[in-house]
Simulated assay, not measured.
Amino acid sequence: MTTAVPTDATAPALLGSLAADRATGALTTASGVFYLSAGQVVHVESALSPALGDLLTRSGAVAPDGWWDAVERAGARHRVGRHLVDSGRLTTGALELCHLGALFDAAYFALTHDDRPARFRPGVAHWLGAVRPVSVETVLSESRRRRALLHRIWPDPAVDTAPLVRAPGADPADLPPRRGRTLALVDGASTAAQIASALACRTFHTLVELRRLAADGLVTPAPPPPAAAALPGPGAPGAAWDEPDTALLRRLLDALEAL
Score class of each variant (00 low, 15 high):
70 A>D: 01
181 R>W: 00
19 A>I: 02
110 A>F: 06
35 Y>S: 01
121 R>W: 04
205 H>T: 07
147 R>N: 05
72 E>K: 12
187 D>I: 01
41 V>F: 06
66 G>N: 02
223 P>V: 06
227 A>Q: 06
105 D>K: 03
37 S>W: 14
130 A>I: 02
76 A>Y: 01
37 S>T: 15
133 P>G: 13
196 A>H: 04
77 R>Y: 10
10 T>Q: 10
90 L>R: 01
80 V>E: 00
139 V>F: 09
55 L>H: 10
72 E>F: 08
68 W>H: 13
72 E>V: 07
242 D>I: 03
9 A>Y: 04
197 S>F: 07
17 S>G: 12
68 W>D: 13
61 A>Q: 12
194 Q>K: 08
222 A>F: 12
217 G>M: 07
185 L>M: 08
9 A>T: 03
91 T>Y: 14
89 R>G: 09
5 V>F: 12
189 A>M: 13
202 R>N: 07
69 D>F: 00
145 R>A: 12
135 S>W: 07
59 S>T: 06
226 P>E: 10
69 D>Y: 00
208 V>C: 08
122 P>G: 14
19 A>C: 02
195 I>D: 06
71 V>F: 14
131 V>I: 15
92 T>M: 11
181 R>E: 07
196 A>K: 05
238 G>P: 00
230 A>Y: 05
171 D>V: 00
78 H>P: 00
250 R>Y: 03
85 V>P: 00
134 V>I: 15
219 V>S: 09
252 L>Q: 15
31 S>W: 11
255 A>H: 14
192 A>M: 02
145 R>W: 13
239 A>C: 04
251 R>F: 06
58 R>P: 02
228 A>F: 05
29 T>F: 07
227 A>G: 10
109 F>Y: 09
258 A>N: 09
139 V>Q: 08
143 S>P: 00
156 D>L: 08
2 T>S: 15
22 R>Y: 06
252 L>N: 08
233 G>H: 05
18 L>A: 04
181 R>G: 02
182 T>R: 09
180 G>A: 08
249 L>S: 11
220 T>C: 11
211 R>M: 01
86 D>P: 00
60 G>F: 08
252 L>D: 09
70 A>T: 00
240 A>M: 13
90 L>K: 00
18 L>H: 03
133 P>V: 13
258 A>L: 14
150 L>G: 05
239 A>F: 03
40 Q>E: 12
199 L>Y: 02
38 A>K: 04
128 L>V: 05
204 F>D: 15
48 L>R: 12
41 V>K: 03
47 A>S: 10
103 L>W: 05
98 C>R: 14
109 F>R: 12
